[in-house]
């Protein structure tokens, strides 16, 4: 009898503990945002800049926590398994769609509750400024005429830029050697130093070297031309129908109460629209492209199918 009362009171107590936040105005304590990439990197800086604005609208501190490793697998997993109370938000990135086809993680985007898309950056094929070709076609023709000579650098094996370069090569039917580096920056450096022939990374990552006339962009893999380099034609304009983007967005673990989700979304959306954040994005040459939860989910679904198909063709997916 005694034990039962104890148990009952314990149950009531625990229930009270869990129920309490629901009655009180969310959020009543600091919110944590998980970043699957290292502090100081592009994703981290973007997330911190956005979260700093969002704090004002949320009325609570937002702590960015970097849970890195396993090519993003650890951070994404931490978001998925976090307590679904709205106090843990996460940044999801392209790798969420490229890790599952490789058989490296036991989850897909469907195990998350997408919140909003923040940006999507297209790949740009970039070569040395003094290279003998200045169009995508010219580059591919050169590659055909000089087999075994073209090396394209990317940021890591199986990374977004590896897939982008693979896709472009596949569409044009040339064979190139893919050289993985430890991040996009070292690949760009190697290109400037003439150790490789091309890179297929984002415009932001080659911008300064292009402006300094060390490198030139042959084409961007997007539907529209780039805002910073409007002179550079897209792949499609040059007759190679390739579009490939990396993207970043926010997501929650599944099962967050709708009211809490709405509050988080509202704060981040307002933060996204602030002048300061827009200015920051322009300085960092990020291609902002907001999508709400529903659109983002639809986008993720399509992107997942596309990426899986490409990776299978490139032999990067698990057989």
């Amino acid at each position: 009898m005694k034990r039962r009362t104890l148990l009952a009171s314990a149950l009531v107590l625990t229930a009270g503990l869990f129920a309490a936040p629901a009655f009180a105005a969310f959020p009543e304590k600091p919110v944590t945002v998980i970043c699957p990439w290292t502090a100081g990197g592009g994703t981290d800086v973007l997330l911190r800049a956005l979260s700093k604005e969002a704090e004002k609208f949320l009325g609570q501190t937002i702590n960015v926590v970097n849970q890195t490793g396993g090519a993003g697998a650890i951070g994404h997993n931490a978001i998925r398994t976090a307590r679904p109370d709205g106090y843990t938000v996460g940044m999801i990135t392209f790798e969420l769609n490229s890790l599952p086809p490789q058989g490296l993680v036991p989850f897909t985007w469907k195990d998350f509750d997408p919140l909003m898309r923040i940006n999507s950056d297209p790949a740009a094929l970039t070569v040395k400024a003094d290279a003998p070709y200045s169009t995508v076609r010219g580059f591919m023709d050169y590659a055909k005429a000089h087999p075994g000579e073209i090396t394209i650098g990317n940021s890591a094996p199986g990374s977004v830029w590896h897939i982008a370069a693979g896709l472009a090569a596949e569409k044009t039917g040339v064979t190139v050697k893919h050289v993985p580096f430890d991040g996009a920056q070292p690949a760009v450096t190697a290109l400037v130093g003439g150790h490789i022939k091309a890179v297929a990374v984002s415009v932001a990552e080659v911008r300064s070297q292009v402006q300094a006339k060390n490198l030139k962009i042959l084409g961007v893999m997007s539907s529209e031309r780039d805002k910073i380099f409007p002179d550079v034609p897209t792949f499609k304009e040059q007759g190679v129908d390739v579009q490939f983007y990396t993207w970043r967005g926010l997501a929650l673990p599944k099962g967050v109460p709708a009211a809490n989700k709405a509050k988080i979304l509202d704060a981040y959306k307002k933060a996204f629209e602030t002048k300061d954040f827009q200015e920051f994005a322009a300085k960092a040459s990020l291609n902002l492209s907001y999508q709400d939860s529903a659109e983002f989910a639809k986008f993720l679904d399509q992107n997942f199918k596309d990426v899986s198909a490409v990776m299978k063709n490139l032999g990067l997916a698990k057989k």
């Binding site: 503990l17 304590k29 944590t32 702590n63 960015v64 926590v65």
Partner: peptide, 14 residues
């Protein structure tokens, strides 16, 4: 430094 430590049992208090 804003680096979170494991909260464990105290998660609802901290």
């Amino acid at each position: 430094l804003n680096l979170s430590m494991p909260a464990g049992l105290l998660i609802d208090i901290l």
